[in-house]
């Protein structure tokens, strides 16, 4: 699994071993109001790493820092042995990271095809590669091929989510940052999403998953972190963790109403 036979030129697979490390990150949206206070975590290849925490704990912010959307005040982010703390999102994409944000991120007035093409923006100068990637995508999601000429905004919620997932995987990323994939999605689709995540893990990808759907997330997790008020609380392999988890999540449940 680890020894990849993919060609070196394929940026997305050139480093299947890349683990993602967040080291003592302090970050926030306004100076002096830190949302994260020295958060550290590590996501390994071929593992699903899950981050849990109550509303407003800073889970989404963790992903934004990892993806370069929020510049940290202190600390570092590494992928493999490369420090990427200051790289912009496009450079992280080229290193094999990909990010699925919370909420609906399709461009409603672009067609399905155009949305997918935007997923290959970093390969805009490499037509052959784009065409190949699109072909692969349509082979995997034939529905999208039929819908390609439709405006993304006219799709059902489930189809839009599918489009997002397909777009996410187009550049063949190795490190996946996924924020609340099950919010606002029909239950049967949620199962499919988790199946996808497991498959990506089995393909050797590094998956970092933020989720409020605690049970489902933990059931596919290999390693779990919990975050409270922007600080690490607990972490451990799932098996070790399951007992204590119930207790911790129980506390949050009393704090907030989880969906």
């Amino acid at each position: 699994m680890i020894g990849s036979s993919a060609p070196i030129s394929d940026a997305a697979t050139n480093n299947t071993r890349s683990s993602l490390v967040m080291d003592k990150i302090t970050a926030g949206y306004h100076a002096d109001q830190w949302v994260l206070n020295g958060v550290s975590l590590r996501a390994e290849p071929e593992r699903v790493t899950v981050v849990l925490g109550p509303n407003g704990a800073g889970k989404s912010t963790v992903l934004k820092v990892l993806y370069g959307l929020v510049a940290p005040h202190a600390g570092s982010v590494r992928v493999g042995d490369q420090d990427i703390t200051r790289l912009p999102p496009e450079a992280r994409l080229a290193l094999g990271l990909a990010y699925l944000p919370q909420g609906h991120s399709v461009f409603p007035s672009l067609t399905v095809q155009e949305n997918l093409e935007m997923g290959l923006w970093i390969y805009r100068h490499d037509r052959a590669r784009r065409e190949e990637a699109l072909e692969r995508c349509f082979a995997e999601y034939p529905v999208l091929k039929d819908l390609r000429a439709k405006l993304a905004g006219s799709l059902s919620g489930g189809q839009q989510r599918l489009l997002e997932v397909a777009r996410l995987m187009l550049p063949n990323p190795t490190v996946l940052l996924i924020d609340e994939p099950s919010v606002g999605v029909a239950p049967n689709l949620v199962d499919i999403l988790y199946e996808h995540i497991v498959r990506w893990r089995n393909q050797g990808k590094t998956v970092l998953l933020v989720d409020q759907n605690v049970e489902a997330a933990v059931s596919i997790a290999d390693y779990v972190y919990t975050l409270e008020s922007g600080r690490n609380r607990l972490d451990g392999p799932r098996d070790e963790f399951e007992g204590r988890l119930r207790e911790v999540v129980g506390q949050w449940l009393r704090l907030d109403v989880l969906p």
Partner: peptide
């Protein structure tokens, strides 16, 4: 000393 109301590069808004 550290108090400024300047926004960080909070580009993820």
């Amino acid at each position: 000393p550290a108090a400024t109301s300047e926004r960080l590069e909070a580009r993820g808004a």
